[in-house]
Amino acid sequence: MSENVKAPKEPLFSKKNKKLVSEPLNDNNPVTIQVLGICSALAITVSVEQALVMTASVLAVLAAGNVVISLLRNLIPSRIRIIVQLVVVASLVIIVNEILKAYLPDMAEKLSVFVGLIITNCIIMGRFEAFAMANKPWPSFLDAIGNSLGYGIVLVLVSIIREIFGAGKIFGIQLFGDRIEGTGLYSVGYMDNNLIILAPFALFAVGLIIWVQRARNKALIEDH
């Protein structure tokens, strides 16, 4: 193809681009369909607040990373592309971590190593490899938004279940009365479920979400 003949300019929010954002939310959810990023879903979903901060961090890293990788995609030698991707994601994670420490020190302490471990989040490397390396910056950016929101939805759903039934709270507000003083529901014998606080329950919760999603979304039912 000669340089002069340009493909017709695609509108910013064409159908294809919109699909980049909407598909990961349901039909191609990174957590429930591709089963990526499970480790962080187990570790930080004990409260909704943590889940939201984690989602925001992943969103920032993935969006910036996808754009950077997409811009560099023609310069990166394919043999060392993983190292280059790692360098990009590592620097972005450090920036996010420092910002959290500066502005949300309590939250940074609660999330502890898990912000740093965003580097190893399969969703990020997966999107770099599968999308940003082969697409222009703007679709890459939309793809990042879609995927991190898809990840965030699952995280928030799991954390809502776990915070309500594990700690009896939502956003830190006590729902059933005070556990230690024994008021409200606790006075008639209600107890918070300790299993829900433990990491294995997050796996059960993700499993339940997958179950409900597959039952509702007929496109996902596999033939066998």
Binding site: M191, N193, N194, L195, I196, L198
Partner: peptide, 10 residues
Amino acid sequence: AFLFFGYPTM
């Protein structure tokens, strides 16, 4: 097991 891990005091 659910009771054991969920409500260890009981």
